[in-house]
Amino acid sequence: MEITIILSSPRSGSSWLSRVVRSIPDHSVFTHNTYTTQFLYSLYPIKSVNPFSDDGIARPGVVDSLLKPWRVRRVRSYIESRASGNPIVLISPTLSNFLPLLKEAFPEARYVHFQRNPLDTIASMKNFLAKNDCGGFIDRYRAHSYGGRFFAMRSACIHTLHRLRWMRLVHRGYLGVRPGGFQQAARYSLVDFLSWYYTANQRDILAGLVDIPESRQVAIHYEKLVESYDDEVAKLLEFMIGDQEKPEIPHSHDGVRSGAVGRSKELFDEAQLEQIRSFLLTNAPQRVLQTYGLATANSTAEQQRITQETS
């Protein structure tokens, strides 16, 4: 079974990239807009709805260990039954939380690490958090009634569930998965929380990729898709399809503005940007910072220590 798993932080452009990969002929693509995310959460129902927990599954207890073989079989059967024999693409910011399970279910999977400038990602998280700090069940139902009753009810239920899951955050709203350490970080100031969230999410992704051969992973960058779309898509197709004849992928720039590159300067003042940079330099993986010129030589030793601890 050919399967590619695309990992990213929330607000890194995964919705845009999902539109790109959905245009690849004869591929079955599962995104956060399908039921796949809800299915994965349903495998850990108590952990998922508990507002005093996080979503991490890397440290299983006795019950989790006993249920692991069943969960692995359920994931494989769920995906295979809906793929109709086509090559498979899984893409969602939620997947970083379920990496241990996905690696067991699909041991030969290829991985794409989709990245965006940390400062712009954190700025987009700030906007998204504020967007979800409004309204209750009825408001969300009315806002999504354009898609029919079932769609509106589903959106309202998910909104209510997320608000419950994120109720301990001092700044109302929600993003997606709750990485390990979420309960402590929920007390942070807004800027520190968003910096922590990005760092924790990237930590989980890189920890999951540490034992994956280099030949089965590749980094794709949001900024390069904006600036050199054809070249970056060609790189992605080469990784996913290999020597096969490459399909012609239509441009998918709907909803994407070049102004999204550098957006952090619109939402944060210089003091806040310096606060974010300081947090990232102290805590974020060196590997993701180097790409965007945010790392310094002085942070290398500290980042190596952090990487060793998380792996």
Rank of each mutant, 00 (worst) to 15 (best):
N201C: 14
F193N: 10
I205R: 05
Q202F: 11
T199P: 11
E223A: 09
T199F: 02
Y222G: 09
L209T: 07
Y222S: 03
V218H: 03
Q217R: 15
T199H: 07
Q217Y: 01
A219T: 10
V191N: 10
A200D: 00
R216L: 11
N201D: 06
L209Y: 08
Q217G: 02
I212S: 09
H221W: 00
N201E: 09
L209K: 08
R203G: 11
W196G: 08
R216S: 13
T199W: 04
I220W: 02
R203Y: 00
D204Y: 00
D211A: 14
W196I: 02
I220C: 05
V210F: 02
Q217T: 09
V210Y: 05
Y197M: 08
S215T: 13
V210P: 00
D192G: 11
I205K: 09
V210K: 12
L194D: 07
Q202C: 14
A207H: 02
R216P: 05
I220M: 01
L209G: 11
V210M: 01
I212D: 06
E214Q: 14
P213G: 05
T199L: 05
V210T: 14
N201G: 00
V191H: 09
S195A: 15
Q217A: 00
I205D: 09
I205G: 09
D192C: 06
L206P: 06
V191E: 13
H221N: 05
Y198V: 07
E214V: 13
V191M: 10
L194K: 07
E214M: 10
V191Y: 03
F193H: 09
S215E: 15
T199K: 07
Y197S: 05
I205Y: 13
G208E: 11
V218R: 08
L206N: 01
H221Y: 15
W196Q: 01
